[in-house]
Write a protein that binds this DNA or RNA. Structure first.
Lengths: 337, 337
DNA sequence: ATTGTTTTCTGAATCGTTTCAATTTATTTA
DNA sequence: TAAATAAATTGAAACGATTCAGAAAACAAT
């Protein structure tokens, strides 16, 4: 039914091997032959069947990327970084999101394995990395992104979240804040627990500063609004004077409720700091202080790492780790203009 | 190297055909055979090679979706609708964005054709649909989404954007607004020009109401902020008393600048209405009046339409159109609480 | 036991591309 | 011009799952 290389070959009066060479390595083919074949391709409207190509090649031209939430700009930026790096080796990136649900994460992994992707980048939901380990043994390299591997079998590209959490809390303390709330969750996500750990460290280094944790179910604007409502309804004496949110979306949710419904002033009544420094942070109602991560670069470096793993013939090389340092970006939500 | 059905068959002591049947139609296989084969699969860690499956089947299990901007929640909602419907026929949706760039749109189309997707849903950037027409003739059904096909060769799922534009402008006029600005662009995107057309119609039906167009390069928060700055810097006498933004992102950008930098009151000094009713609209600084579209349902219906086209053997059936009516959702940005 | 019927299983052929050793053609060197 | 070398082309084999006509096994009816 559909046009195949065989049809093109016949129309151009050459062999199928030559058609394939025109498609893949035109330099190896005489110019006028290339022209003849191209003409036949255009005339017949030939479209290469990628499944057949992959079958022969044994590998696809794609890399899988599983993130926690595609709607978080942090992850779309990261994905963009990955795409840019992938293009260098003309690969493409398949984006999937786990929605923080372990089962979806597994389903995506299987899908990618069946597609014989070159490798998988993942921001894991939980601590159970067993399925990923198995996939890696079967020959699909895995790189953990935005998450340092405790397990020595995985390579990773991460940011020092403990340092980031410390920075954030330290900044609030240096502004003279005493009653700090950490808003975020679930704590099973390593990024969240590390950021909290850093904050706790900063707090214990000072007298008279308390840290309270308000948990939320996921790191979304919606959950942030829940936390905001919880804070705003408290009597003034019980209310924190600073909030460190586990990411910017949560911070933005908190900000919306506190400013709008309750008339709290930010930063006067409440200092607020987020995490990730998504592009939306600087354009929030009150520009948001945040902890910046080299998002785009993380995506790119993760892909490079993956490609180097895929190249190594034996595949049994030692896991490599790349760790970036975060950076404090001060804006109006902690220090008034 | 990798484990194949052949290896599984040998290990389980059955033929390759039986392994395939266990994978695809276990009902046709005796129970204890299924168990034997499953055990072998688990033991060997067999992972089905999707490329080989597709090659034989002739079609993939995917549908391609090309949207203008993945970061716009309107399109992620639409994509979710498509995914949900696709799952019914156990298909998956491959999401790609054109970033409003015609060349990227073409590249994505080729990629999808090479993958032999079941069909492509697309929100086209421009009016040149020739490449899509060719793809359709070659056997890949195309459905235009969020855009009515002028060309009778394509099926489409759309919302009556002229009616939506009319509704929006009419609402502003009924509130007594006289100097209305339409903010949006590029006009080559049909959704934008239709919404403008509707607004113009409403304006011409009334005396003493003017409509000014402020163009922007794309429908993003960033561009909205540019428009906001342009409006806010005007002397009061030249300033509009209402703005109709071509989508919610632009409206949010305008809102941020006007409220924050210039201290304009919304809706008192300026009524503001958006379009799409993305989930973020209701949680904006001032809850945004907007025109709601049945986003999720559009995605779902588009997939259903596509599947029905793919089923039809000849493929030469008449194009079908589904058109929804939009709905006005009134919030604080036009009518104060 | 024989025949008929249903259920289960088999395995060679197939999908469309790429690969690569072998062959043909063109170019250079002596 | 003949021999040596380089460039271009050929075409059958291979990738791994699915298909399907036919064989084998299991069961039922006579």
């Amino acid at each position: 039914m559909a046009i195949s290389v065989r049809d093109v070959a016949k129309a151009a009066g050459v062999s199928v091997g030559t058609v394939s060479n025109v498609l893949n390595t035109p330099d190896k083919v005489a110019n006028k032959t290339v022209e003849k074949v191209q003409a036949a391709i255009d005339k017949l409207g030939f479209v290469r069947n990628d499944a057949a190509r992959q079958l022969r090649a044994g590998k696809s031209r794609s890399i899988g990327l599983v993130v926690l939430d595609v709607r978080n700009p942090f992850f779309t930026d990261l994905a963009r970084g990955a795409e840019d790096a992938a293009q260098e080796s003309n690969m493409s990136v398949l984006l999937a999101n786990s929605d923080e649900i372990p089962d979806r994460e597994l389903a995506m992994l299987s899908l990618f394995e069946e597609q014989r992707v070159h490798g998988v980048l993942v921001t894991p939901v939980s601590d159970d990395l067993e399925p990923f380990k198995k996939a890696q043994l079967r020959g699909t390299p895995i790189v953990l992104v935005d998450r340092k591997s405790r397990d020595k079998s995985f390579s990773s590209v991460s940011v020092d979240d403990v340092a980031g959490g410390y920075m954030a809390a330290k900044h609030l303390i240096e502004l003279g804040r005493k009653r700090i709330v950490f808003a975020g969750g679930p704590l099973s996500i390593q990024q969240v627990s590390d950021r909290l750990k850093g904050a706790q460290k900063a707090v214990t280094e000072h007298q008279n500063v308390t840290l309270e944790v308000i948990a939320c179910k996921s790191l979304t604007v919606f959950e942030g609004r829940e936390v905001g409502a919880e804070i705003a309804k408290r009597p003034k004496s019980k209310r924190p004077d600073a909030v460190f949110a586990a990411n910017d979306l949560v911070a933005i949710g908190i900000m919306q409720v506190c400013l709008n419904q309750e008339g709290l002033r930010i930063p006067n009544d409440l200092s607020l700091i987020g995490y990730d420094d998504i592009s939306f942070a600087s354009t929030a109602i009150v520009a948001l202080t945040s902890i910046r991560q080299p998002t785009h670069e993380m995506g790119a470096r993760a892909v490079e790492l993956l490609m180097s793993m895929a190249d190594e013939t034996n595949g049994k090389s030692k896991a490599k780790h790349i760790e970036f340092q975060p950076e404090l970006v001060i804006r109006d939500s902690t220090v008034a203009k």
